[in-house]
């Protein structure tokens, strides 16, 4: 493992630790008495005391923090107050929807953004370019949840090709379950890919002006071959930067889109937990979301090193 990767790994772990501290402080220390909040202001003092005891809120904050951290490693996050089941069970059920949805959306985003972005750059200042740019400008302005609603309106309400929402579960019919994630993934991806397509286009245009592209052409490579063989990998460097930010948005977008399509994922879970004032579940799920964002950023960092040899050997 190179020093660069070790350094990124260290930054990754440090970020995880710091973010967990923020989440813990905001959702457990800042509110004061979580037990009181969960039961409401009218609750009997005895009941509050009992819940406090049950949740271990009488222990010092530092100890609770460490226990909570350890819980993330072991999977023992305690029981949900409202559901009376282990939190980890709730999460595992929901994550089986949220992660596939996010991955599908990311793959779609990359596929759409790269092809349209490169296409626009290759047709610079021609109708193909203008079309893509116009589409991107509109895509950026559209809220993803509205686009989701429009998809439902068209493909579910009008055409009846898809159901308007809900999730049949992976066990019964995986294909049906997959189908239920298509519209949500598309509504997440199309809007995200608009921004990425613009970045890809300008990155490719920048690269096409580079001297090494002229060198490649002087060697006898066609325009297309020079673009694919020499331009794309260099153009990916700025694209990957934006991709990292985009995917962080995309992950928080799953929270919204799950609500549009009534998908019982983490995003729905967190809203149910909020309405039931189940601070424990809120805290765990928020942390899980943050972990996903940080992990994505870490992977993007690694991708950087893979693309740009200058990073690998630079001391």
């Amino acid at each position: 493992m190179s020093a660069v990767i070790a350094q990124r790994l260290f930054a990754f772990l440090a970020t995880l630790l710091a973010t967990s501290l923020v989440v813990f402080l905001v959702l457990e220390v800042l509110p004061g008495d979580s037990a009181q909040i969960m039961l409401g202001v009218d609750a009997e003092p005895d009941a509050v005391a009992a819940l406090r005891e049950k949740l271990g809120l009488n222990r010092p904050a530092a100890e609770r923090y460490l226990t909570w951290l350890a819980g993330f490693m072991t999977g023992d996050l305690g029981d949900s107050y409202t559901y009376s089941v282990p939190v980890i069970e709730l999460i595992v059920d929901r994550i089986a929807i949220t992660i596939p949805l996010a991955v599908m959306a990311m793959v779609l985003t990359i596929a759409i953004a790269l092809t349209t972005g490169v296409f626009a750059a290759a047709h610079h200042n021609r109708p193909g370019d203008w079309g893509v740019m116009l589409g991107a400008q509109i895509g950026i302005a559209m809220p993803n949840f509205w686009f989701g609603i429009l998809l439902v309106l068209f493909f579910a309400v009008t055409l009846g090709w898809f159901s308007a929402g809900g999730f049949p579960g992976w066990e019964d019919d995986p294909l049906d379950a997959f189908k239920a994630l298509i519209l949500p993934a598309v509504s997440l991806a199309l809007v995200q890919s608009a921004i990425l397509a613009r970045v890809t286009r300008s990155a490719v245009l920048d690269v096409l002006r580079e001297d090494y592209i002229r060198t490649a052409r002087a060697k006898g490579l066609s325009k297309r071959a020079a673009l694919w063989g020499h331009g794309l990998r260099n153009a990916m460097i700025p694209v990957v930067t934006v991709m990292g930010l985009q995917f962080a948005f995309l992950l928080s977008g799953t929270i919204i889109i799950e609500n549009v399509f009534y998908l019982p994922g983490l995003g729905r879970l967190i809203f149910q937990a909020i309405s039931q004032r189940d601070l424990i579940v809120v805290k765990d799920v928020v942390m899980l979301m943050v972990i996903k964002v940080v992990v994505i950023n870490f992977l993007v960092d690694l991708l950087y090193v893979a693309i740009d040899p200058r990073l690998k050997t630079a001391t």
Binding site: T15, A18, T19, V22, V23, V26, L27, L30, P31, I37, L245, A248, F249, L251, S252, G253, I255, I256, I270, A273, I274, R277, L279, V282, V286, M289, V290, V293, V294, N297
Partner: peptide
Amino acid sequence: SDLAFAFPAVLTAIMITAL
């Protein structure tokens, strides 16, 4: 500010609303 980027607006809003 790097740290803050780990918290998309929706997550921050969720935390604030939970409180």
